[in-house]
């Protein structure tokens, strides 16, 4: 039974194309597609494993899905897998987006393109407001923590201070408050 082509240990090509299909199928966030591929279709991870591994990916900053690809790639095929999986995830979309960029360079000045892009940007801003609303609604202890959101908006959108310092300061204050709220027994 110990064939090298054991479905539990996909070869690098399978890893690459599995993550390519994930990258290319998602619009505005590909995480649900990653979950479907990993847990339901390929069964490389169980639902619990998926949640556990996603935990670190969401804990650390940066693009969560790329982080997840690194984790799954490492699990399935070591260092080579950890390189190939995120490459697969990004290669296809990267090519598409660069082709769009070429089109934009060529036709972006046309009034029609300008007004379409303004419409898409407006819709995109709406999606971002909705995302912020949902994330805000999901916060624990809103009365305590929402003021930190407001301070970030003031500092970033209002005063245009550098994000690095706001985030470091915010992390100390907001994380410190969370630390205190959690109490020593948790």
């Amino acid at each position: 039974m110990d064939y090298p082509q054991n479905p539990q240990r996909p070869d690098l090509r399978a890893l690459f194309f599995a993550f390519s299909s994930v990258g290319l199928s998602g619009f505005g966030g590909v995480l649900p597609f990653a979950r479907r591929m990993l847990v339901e279709q390929r069964r490389w991870l169980s639902a619990e494993e998926f949640n556990a591994q996603l935990g670190l990916c969401q804990f650390l900053p940066g693009p969560n899905v790329v982080n997840l690809a690194v984790v799954v790639g490492k699990r399935q095929a070591g260092l080579a897998g950890a390189i190939v999986a995120p490459l697969g995830l990004l290669a296809g979309p990267l090519v598409i987006v660069l082709l769009l960029a070429l089109l934009y360079d060529r036709y972006g000045e046309l009034p029609l393109a300008q007004s379409m892009l303004r419409g898409v940007a407006a819709a995109g801003a709406g999606l971002l407001f909705a995302m912020a609303w949902r994330m805000g609604a999901a916060l624990r202890d809103k009365a305590l923590f929402l003021p930190f959101s407001a301070l970030v908006v003031l500092g970033i959108a209002g005063l245009r201070w550098p994000m690095l310092w706001i985030m470091l300061g915010g992390l100390v204050l907001s994380g410190g408050l969370a630390w205190w709220r959690l109490g020593p027994r948790r």
């Binding site: 912020a132 805000g136 301070l151 970033i156 992390l171 204050l173 994380g175 969370a178």
Partner: peptide, 16 residues
């Protein structure tokens, strides 16, 4: 604490 503390900051960033 980091997870809890970062969440409201992320809300502020997306809103900004």
């Amino acid at each position: 604490a980091v997870s809890l503390g970062v969440a409201p900051l992320a809300v502020g960033l997306i809103f900004s």
